[in-house]
């Protein structure tokens, strides 16, 4: 079943690089990462690639395949036409280290700036009680494998390096949403924080993050928009205000 197919792989580092052509054998059932491995084992032993689990679980092998941000280990060769040349390039939004590997420390810095879970006061370990329906929304966001494909695709930073300072990106919007929806989180100003410090307002909900997320997390619909709405609650909504006066309910 093996056949030779055409590939173009970007090789280089911060001083420049180019797309190099290779003809590589492809077998039934293989994914793009298999091809990169075959190149390493044959023509280019020092071809740099980051990967780990090869099962779509760790989010290491993010790269751009025919221009689309994807996990190389989950992109099957059968999704391309036989005679199609497949172009493999590193993530564009982050600085390149070498070949297909980029420096993703932007994301780790943003993670560090995002306020952590605040445990409820006076609840001992083992005494946490939460209902399944109350944890489900946050659980969706905890499926995130930190592949940073969403961060890479988001035009706010992809096309505008200067926004990196003020914009945390979709991965950390879902983190903020996760904690805001966590039934026992004790911090109450996560929405304000998302708006003021994470740059939620930069997002124009064009949904590319959702489009590329390999975990199929509905980043925009279930995290970003609800967070924007929560900000609106606090600031502008007359009926919410009235309702809270009348019912004096805490949600």
């Amino acid at each position: 079943m093996a056949s030779k197919r055409q590939f173009r792989v970007w090789r280089g580092d911060e001083n420049g690089g180019d797309l190099q052509d290779f003809a590589v054998e492809v077998n039934e059932g293989e994914v793009v990462l298999d091809i990169v491995h075959r190149l390493q084992a044959t023509e280019t032993p020092d071809l740099a690639v980051r990967w780990n689990c090869k099962a779509g679980k760790c989010g290491s092998c993010s790269m751009e395949i025919n221009g689309m941000p994807k996990l190389a280990c989950m992109t099957r060769m059968s999704s391309f036409a036989e005679d199609e040349t497949i172009t493999i390039t590193p993530l564009r939004t982050f600085p390149v280290m070498r070949d297909l590997v980029t420096d993703v420390s932007f994301n780790y810095e943003k993670a560090r700036e995002t306020p952590s879970f605040a445990p409820p006061a006076g609840v001992a370990p083992g005494d946490y009680r939460m209902q399944q329906v109350d944890v489900e929304r946050s659980q969706e966001f905890r499926k995130c494998i930190e592949c940073f494909l969403c961060q890479n695709t988001c035009h706010v930073v992809r096309d505008h390096e200067e926004n990196k300072e003020a914009f945390s990106g979709p991965r950390f919007f879902i983190r903020a949403a996760e904690l805001d929806m966590h039934p026992l989180d004790a911090k109450t100003d996560r929405k304000e924080y998302a708006q003021a410090e994470q740059g939620l307002g930069f997002c124009n909900i064009t949904k590319c993050c959702t489009e590329v997320c390999p975990e199929h997390i509905k980043i925009t619909d279930n995290a970003i928009i609800p967070m924007k709405e929560r900000v609106v609650d606090r600031r502008y909504d007359p009926i919410v205000w009235l309702g809270s006066k009348i019912f004096r309910r805490t949600s």
């Binding site: 952590s116 879970f117 445990p119 370990p125 083992g126 939460m130 944890v135 904690l179 966590h182």
Partner: peptide, 18 residues
């Protein structure tokens, strides 16, 4: 395991919330 909940882990729950 219980300690992990104080770090923010969200395990699946039983009907009584454990």
């Amino acid at each position: 395991i219980w300690e992990l909940e104080t770090y923010g882990a969200l395990f699946d729950r039983t009907a009584d919330g454990k």
